[in-house]
Amino acid sequence: MIQLRGIAYHVRHWGNEDAPKIFMMHGWMDVSASFQFVVDQLQADWHVIAPDWRGFGLTEAPGTDTYWFPDYLGDLDALLTQYSPDEPVNLLGHSMGGNVVGLYAGARPERVRRLVDLEGFGLPATSPEQAPGRYRKWLEELRTPPVLKTYASLAEVAARLQKTNPRLSNEKAAFLSQHWARENAQGRWEILGDPAHKQTSPLLFHVEEMMACWANISAPVLWMEAEDTDIWSWMGPKEQARPEIDRRLTYFRQLEKHMIADAGHMLHHDQPALLAKIIEAFLLRP
């Protein structure tokens, strides 16, 4: 546990403190232990550093009713200052974490040596006309704070994880469940995530701002995407979303792309050995 920007942050470490570092940033409603299966498959000597984002896992929730992307950037900047103040870093992010590291690498290009993005697609484009409705929805949600479902046992938590990802083995689901939930005073298992994460953001997503950040990245970028991703469920019909995603990827100056077969959005759970092999080849390349 360390203090970052006034919050008690839980940071998970694997490997040798003196080895080259990889920072791994998890996605929405996930935890740092999610990277265990990829870390298990790494062959070289690494020091892997992975925090639980604010309000997730064992990291303190700031007591807010809405989470803002700039806070994730601020937390990441503080984390890198803590563990690698002088050297550019190898930075990896999945999903929401991928979106954060992409923005950060554009805002502070000198701080990133290599960038690995696992399905950090961004969100659907918006238009100004959506603003009144978005603000109204946010205001209405503030009246009834969100809650997260609880479970009777860790086995139920594991089953919930497998419902979301049917590829998840019993062994992996059992491992993840103990890091994804904890028992409360009533004997129920509650998800280690602040319910406020479910709150609608009142701010519209501006894809042009994300593209400007991507275009400003100076580091080589490794992009990995799953063949069976469910990203289309929030990006729109595949026939419309695919061209838009491909358009966005053109903003990276130095891009290496891999499509991962037999994997869904949690591709680091589904194909950890393949991901570890591709990641190491990318990071170790001169």
Rank of each mutant, 00 (worst) to 15 (best):
E208Q: 14
S127C: 15
T126K: 09
S153L: 09
I260S: 04
E171C: 01
A185L: 09
A276Y: 03
D45S: 06
D230Y: 09
T164K: 15
H179M: 04
F23Q: 04
P88S: 10
E110L: 03
T59V: 00
R247N: 12
V116E: 04
A158D: 01
S169W: 01
A263C: 02
M210K: 13
P166Y: 04
A226E: 05
H26V: 03
V100D: 06
P237W: 00
V48N: 03
Q43P: 03
Q162N: 06
Y83W: 06
P128N: 11
W28G: 06
E129Q: 11
W28M: 11
L274Y: 06
A241Q: 06
A152W: 13
A185C: 08
M210F: 15
P146Q: 09
E208H: 14
E208C: 11
G236K: 08
R134A: 06
S233A: 15
R247Y: 10
W68I: 10
N184I: 05
D228N: 09
G102K: 08
W180D: 01
I22K: 00
Y9T: 08
L4R: 01
R247Q: 12
D75N: 05
D71W: 15
M235R: 11
I191G: 13
M96P: 03
E171M: 00
D77C: 07
H197Q: 11
L42A: 06
G74L: 08
S95K: 05
L92N: 00
A263E: 03
P146E: 05
D45N: 11
L154V: 07
Q41G: 10
A219C: 04
E190V: 14
G120I: 07
E256H: 08
L267R: 05
M266G: 12
D18E: 12
G98Q: 01
A281T: 14
E280C: 04
E239G: 02
D65V: 12
G63M: 06
T64M: 13
V100C: 07
E208N: 13
M29N: 13
A125G: 14
P237Q: 03
P243L: 08
K172Y: 00
A261W: 01
I278V: 07
I7Y: 01
